[in-house]
Design a protein around this nucleic acid. Structure first.
Lengths: 200, 200
DNA sequence: GGAATTATTGGACAGGTGCGCAATAGTGAT
DNA sequence: ATCACTATTGCGCACCTGTCCAATAATTCC
């Protein structure tokens, strides 16, 4: 393989790791698979990374951070709090792609056994909650939403979304994507004192 | 190891597998670990079981089925629908033990890659939903609960519980057990038209 | 140009994996 | 007491795992 700028090489290794993780799952991702994905030797991976655990954590962190930033960007483009909330739900339930949620399922399951991964997973989950929570606080300040406990409201809406989406991704069709959308919209309307159908 | 009745031996193998799974996680459960747990040789396991996948699926199915039956028994001991619903929540959030939920996290993550496990996980998830759904229908028929869509209500309450409990188990304390209890109670009261505090 | 640096290779290492199989040792029937 | 039966053993097989390291090749600096 052609010699490459160290920073770019590191990038490409993380990207390849992520691709393998999404295809095979976190637990089944090996150094050799990453090397093959990249078209290089396995020794090269360890020249840039001290352990497999570190690499996996970094790849997960990268993917989850990008998803979060994409959502934050979509939200901040909204014209008002209601519109921003609508955009939040849209970017959370990306109908075209299960692999993002599958990665989260893997991370939650592995968290108990991989401290570094747990830390990353926890930090990013809290960041999602904060994004939603700030959005709600804004809506309350502007008088278009009502919530006695924005922190709790954010956790409840996020957990409902997680629980419902989980059913879609893990089991196929116990719950449909349309139901996830409809039900989480209605829950948000109830929680925030919005007229039914506001988010539809 | 002493010779044993084949049926009992099979039982003991599944039980040992479950113990290892709860300690180390589904993905990290090996034939040799099960044999050691049991105090026998690894060859014996394969004399009763054709593949490791089959064994793991069977052990998960066993554990989840027992949990479900325990919950069903607790529920059916309730004096009226409200009491039964209270018992449902109590048996779902067993504060003393994370290992049950950890097993579900593992199962949901592995489901996409292990068809047999997916089938079991899905079937048992649906059975939990049915237990709750029947409880709600009963309550509606007796006029003490209100729900336009018991099926959907059951999925929403279950998913909220899953999403919240997931945070407890995977991340430690992003959400506390008290919050899981309080918030799921309140959600049920809202969904079913019960006065606030009915389930406390 | 030559020299120093370092990205990259490919294989060695110790250990772990599921599975299969001949040999052994209990058990119950005759 | 001898038989057929089978539960149980313990090891062998081929393969996979993360990690390490000497050798090689490409690059940069002087």
């Amino acid at each position: 393989m052609a010699r490459m700028n160290p920073d770019l090489r590191r990038e490409s290794i993380v990207a390849a790791t992520l691709a393998v993780m999404q295809r095979q799952g976190i637990a089944a991702t090996t150094v050799r698979d990453v090397a093959t994905e990249l078209g290089t030797s396995s020794g090269l991976i360890h020249h840039y990374v001290t352990s497999m655990d570190e690499l996996i954590t970094e790849a997960f962190e990268r993917a989850a951070t990008e998803d979060l930033e994409r959502a934050a960007a979509a939200v901040s483009g909204g014209s008002d709090p209601i519109d921003r909330l609508r955009r939040f739900f849209e970017s959370y339930t990306r109908a075209d792609d299960d692999s993002g949620m599958q990665l989260w399922l893997d991370a939650w399951a592995e968290a108990a056994r991989r401290p570094a991964l747990q830390q990353a997973s926890r930090r990013l989950n809290e960041a999602w909650q904060r994004l939603l929570c700030n959005l709600i606080k804004d809506g309350c300040a502007q008088g278009v939403m009502r919530s006695e406990d924005p922190e709790g409201t954010a956790w409840r809406l996020l957990s409902l979304l997680d629980g419902l989406t989980l059913q879609c991704v893990a089991h196929g069709d116990t719950v449909t994507r349309e139901q996830v959308m409809l039900w989480s919209h209605r829950a948000a309307e109830m929680e925030l004192g919005l007229p039914q159908g506001t988010l539809a």
